[in-house]
Structure formats: structure tokens, C-alpha cells
Design a protein around this nucleic acid. Structure first.
Lengths: 125, 125
DNA sequence: CTTATGTTTCGACATTCGTTGAAATATGGA
DNA sequence: TCCATATTTCAACGAATGTCGAAACATAAG
């Protein structure tokens, strides 16, 4: 990925409301959630949420699909993959022991299987 | 990790100069690089770099150690692990096929072994 | 066609952020 | 002690960002 899109994605996520939206949609999975339900779940004004959703979509982190009157948003897992790869690129200059913990963390990421393995330390927003 | 530190880390990385610094130090490995060399390598004014380094250290992304007149900075791999775990937390609600590509991407991340396996697509800053 | 619902767009405002120049601090050497 | 090098701190300026109210747009139902 290009550095410009990495900046776009990082700054899209670097705001409390948008980070909450993204994480909510990561948890929701591929079906996604309609904009109105996101606003209700997070207590955000509809117009504020709308601008934030636009920024996340523009950054490639979310997809959107209209269903009647409702617009349903979903997280795009590939966007996260690309970002992680970009941040770790050429890491640890041939010393596997340095970045192995990072890879293990990604593999554990509280997912797959459902909740047998927990993340090490929770990270606050 | 807490959401506040996730925001701190994401916004620390969401700026071209700081992202370049962090990636340079990820590539440099655990020995790190003195501030002056970082400034020279990236063409940044010393005082500008100093504020950016302070932000990265404050976010927990870098460590610093004085060596005589020089201050040497290094990336902290754990900070990246925690961030990735936080972003992927409770992802894909029991559907492994959704987030498996993310984990594979992390495992491939152009590292360990040195450069046999390449990242899928480069990501611009 | 009119109305109601869901969502977005626009303009304005206060706040935050990044850079710059000048000065200050810290360490090492003559 | 005095000087040179390396880095940080401070104050100020312009640019970018997030939020709000009001209005506009899109879809569906009566």
C-alpha cells in the first residue's frame, strides 16, 4: 500500500468516534450495520456520524450498501491487513525474534476461534 | 489496551513525518538510530523532529536512550502488537474465514525470513 | 401527490495540529 | 573554564479538523 493511503487509514482511525464505529463494525462482521443503528449504538448525531462514515469509506476501511431507505456499513478486513503489512514492512532486519511476538499477537487477536484465547492486555481508546 | 492509548498511537502514526520515522526505526531494528541521523535521513529540521519524536515516545511507540551527546531512538514492537490486537478484537464473530487473511498478512509482513515472501500490495504513506 | 423516515450536505465556529525561528539545556573535549 | 555539538523547549502563526444547526436529498408508504 502507498504511504498516502496508510496516512488516510491511520488518521481515519485516530479519532474516538470513528475508532468506535470501526471497532463496532469489526465486531459486527460482514453483514454490517445501518447508519441509524450505528448512531444509536454510539450516541452520535446523525450528521456527525455521516461525515465520519464518509471519512472511513474514503479511507477504504468501510464498505457501504443501500438497502431501501437504509444504508448499511461494514468493515473491510483487507484494509486492516494492508495497514498491518505496511507498518511491519522490513521489520527487524532479519532478526525473527523481534517481530514474532507481533505476529503471534495478530494470530491471537481475540478471534478465530471465538473466545478461547484472550488478548494479552486490553488497549483503551 | 485502552481506547485512549489506541487513539494516541494511531494519531501519532497518522502524520507523514512521524510515520516515516516509525517505519525507519522498524526497519532499523532494536539498536535504533540517533535523532540527528533520523533528521538527516528524512530531511527534517531538528526541532521539528524533536517534537515528533516526543509524540511517538509519549504514545509508547518508541523508546529512547541517551548515549553521550546523542539520543538513540528505537521502535517498540509490543506497541504494534497491542494496537493490532485492539483493532481486531472480537472480529468476525466466530467466522474464522473473515479475519484469517488479516492474520496471514501479519505473518507474511515482509519479515521473518528476511525477504523470501513479499507483501501483497505496497501501501503508500 | 403528499407525508414521514433515513441519511447526507452545507456553512460557520472553536479547537487542535505542524512548522518555524530563537533561545535554552546537556554532554564532551580543548 | 570555554567552546562546539546534539537535542530540546518556547511562543507564534497558518492550516486542518470535529461538531453543530439548518437545509437538502432519497426512498417508501398512504
Amino acid at each position: 500500500m502507498e504511504s498516502s493511503s496508510a496516512i488516510d487509514r491511520l488518521s481515519a482511525l485516530a479519532q474516538p468516534g470513528r475508532l468506535a464505529v470501526f471497532r463496532l463494525l469489526v465486531r459486527a462482521g460482514p453483514e454490517g450495520i445501518p447508519a441509524g443503528e450505528i448512531a444509536a449504538a454510539l450516541g452520535l448525531a446523525p450528521n456527525t456520524l455521516s461525515s465520519q462514515l464518509a471519512i472511513l469509506v474514503q479511507a477504504g476501511l468501510l464498505s457501504s450498501a443501500r438497502e431501501g431507505r437504509v444504508i448499511r456499513y461494514a468493515a473491510r478486513p483487507d484494509a486492516l491487513s494492508e495497514l498491518i503489512v505496511y507498518l511491519m514492512e522490513d521489520c527487524c532486519g532479519g532478526r525473527p525474534e523481534i517481530c514474532q511476538p507481533v505476529q503471534e499477537a495478530a494470530a491471537r487477536a481475540a478471534c478465530c476461534p471465538p473466545s478461547r484465547i484472550r488478548a494479552r492486555r486490553p488497549l483503551s481508546a
